[in-house]
Amino acid sequence: MGKDRSSDDFAAFVDAVGPRLHNFATMIAADGHDGEDLLQTALERIWVRWQSRPPSEPYAYARQVVLNAQRSRMRLRLNKSEFPMDFADSVDESASKDVGLEWEDAALDRDVLRSSLRALSPHQRNVVVLRYLEDLAVADVAEILCCSVGSVKKNSHIGLQRLRVEIARAGVVAQDCEV
């Protein structure tokens, strides 16, 4: 009976935060298909933990699992010497729709944002997504990424500058956007 309950709880968790977690994974991966793969990997890992003992902060735990899975993927690519200098330009149309977060006010299209995020280093992308998409404080981002507050501030500043350049290259006016 315990397994049925944990299964139901996990299904309710995925229903509640699945779209938000999907959006987070897609932005961290900077690609729709890679984001879906990343989310699937993360949900598998979360399910294994959930069966024995559900986390006390499920979304924070899930976000950390997504980040760890992305780091593992990047390490594998580096070890195999297959790290792409330019990410594939595949676009996932379903992920470009608003999935639970309020981006209606933003002047940027999700596809433009996602392609612009590809220009950032993985660490800069993680910092920018956690700070501005997840709306976390600098100290919280530093704790999640296991780095200093100064590193978060520096990578946030450089990442935002580079993001603005990439968005301008895409031809989107980002004057009113808080990127």
Rank of each mutant, 00 (worst) to 15 (best):
W50S: 00
Q51M: 12
Q51C: 04
S52R: 06
R53N: 12
R53T: 08
P54E: 01
S56V: 11
Y61G: 02
Y61I: 01
A62W: 09
A62F: 05
R63V: 14
R63I: 09
Q64R: 14
L67H: 05
L67W: 06
L67M: 06
N68C: 10
N68I: 06
A69W: 02
Q70D: 14
S72Q: 15
R73V: 02
R73L: 04
R75S: 13
L76E: 13
R77K: 13
R77G: 00
L78G: 01
L78V: 03
L78M: 10
L78C: 03
L78K: 07
N79H: 05
N79C: 04
N79D: 13
K80R: 15
S81A: 13
F83H: 02
F83P: 00
P84E: 00
P84T: 01
D86S: 07
D86W: 03
F87W: 10
F87A: 14
A88R: 06
D89S: 11
S90M: 11
V91T: 11
D92H: 13
E93Q: 12
A95V: 08
S96A: 10
S96F: 04
K97Q: 09
D98I: 08
D98A: 07
V99M: 12
G100Y: 03
G100C: 06
G100L: 08
E102L: 11
W103D: 09
A107S: 15
L108R: 06
L108N: 09
D111E: 15
L113F: 14
